[in-house]
């Protein structure tokens, strides 16, 4: 598919879901993140580093914004008045956290701008990055409204995993080299295994067969992962319960109390990750 896909579906990609989009999916992997449950512990981020061979860039480069965290926890202080009279850069109270991974947009803005078609949409509804094809133009990164693409400015493997740490590298995916863009894949290597196993056992991939590393690690089960084409999967049910649907730029809700929303869905990116708004009792 890949290049052929992009050539035949080019206009569809560019116009997004308004004109029907690209609907020939085998799976549609999606996620739901309950911000009420998220305690900002960063375990998901650590799991992602361990699973996906993410380069450890060091403090200096991290401060320059070159961190390779595919899964990052964003911090917000949305209630600065919780501690009146105290002015801190990072107040000890009132923080809320937002785990941010690739939103696997169905009308991804990164895809049509790649000059070499190194990023494309898979039949699994994933936004794929082919490292071998990437020439490092960084168009995709600049076009991503979520800033979820990370560029290898250096050959991190030279010093990221000194002996014997190189033994913990995951053999199921490559260690990326300098000049290559990379991003969250929803742990495609695990999805691959789950699909192979299901095929060998002559059945469909069931809900719960596959979890990305972040979902597996989350101590509070704030992250839910599954196939959104499967009506019985927990992620589909959650999306339905909160009246969030794919292929819309504005969600219609019967009940204002429903917390589900997608980040920047007004930009017509059609992300596959739904967030459940954090509710806090401010009066306490």
């Amino acid at each position: 598919m890949s290049l052929q896909n992009i050539l035949t579906n080019w206009s569809q990609y560019r116009k997004g879901h308004e004109q029907g989009g690209f609907h020939d999916y085998e799976h549609m992997w999606g996620m739901a993140v309950d911000l009420n449950k998220c305690i900002g512990c960063n375990a998901c981020s650590v799991a992602c580093y361990a699973e996906n061979n993410l380069g450890i860039v060091g403090k200096d480069r991290f401060e320059k914004g070159q961190g390779m965290h595919w899964m990052r926890i964003e911090r917000y202080w949305d209630e600065p008045n919780l501690a009146p009279g105290v002015s801190e850069e990072f107040p000890s109270r009132g923080a809320s956290f937002l785990p941010m991974m690739c939103q696997q947009c169905n009308a991804a803005t990164c895809e049509p701008v790649c000059p070499v078609a190194a990023t494309y949409h898979t039949p699994d509804g994933l936004n794929a990055q082919v490292y071998n094809r990437c020439i490092g133009s960084r168009y995709c990164s600049n076009n991503c409204p979520y800033r979820l693409r990370y560029f290898n400015f250096y050959s991190y493997y030279d010093w990221s995993w000194p002996e014997p740490l190189n033994m913990q590298l995951n053999p199921d995916l490559s260690v990326r080299d300098k000049g290559v863009m990379e991003k969250c894949t929803f742990c495609v290597q695990r999805i691959r295994v789950a699909k192979d196993t299901a095929r060998r056992e002559d059945r469909k991939v069931a809900d719960g067969d596959v979890y990305p590393a972040c979902v597996q690690t989350c101590p509070t089960d704030a992250l839910v992962f599954g196939d959104m084409l499967d009506p019985e999967s927990s992620v589909t049910k959650l999306w339905k319960a909160h009246q969030v649907e794919l292929g819309k730029t504005k969600q219609h809700k019967d009940n204002e109390e429903l917390r589900g929303y997608r980040i920047f869905e007004g930009l017509n990116t059609d992300p596959c990750v739904m967030y459940l708004e954090r509710v806090r009792e401010v009066e306490v």
Binding site: M1, T122, P123, A128, V130
Partner: peptide
């Protein structure tokens, strides 16, 4: 299969 991600990882 001719999907890139079938063989490239």
């Amino acid at each position: 299969p001719s999907d890139c991600w079938k063989c490239h990882k």
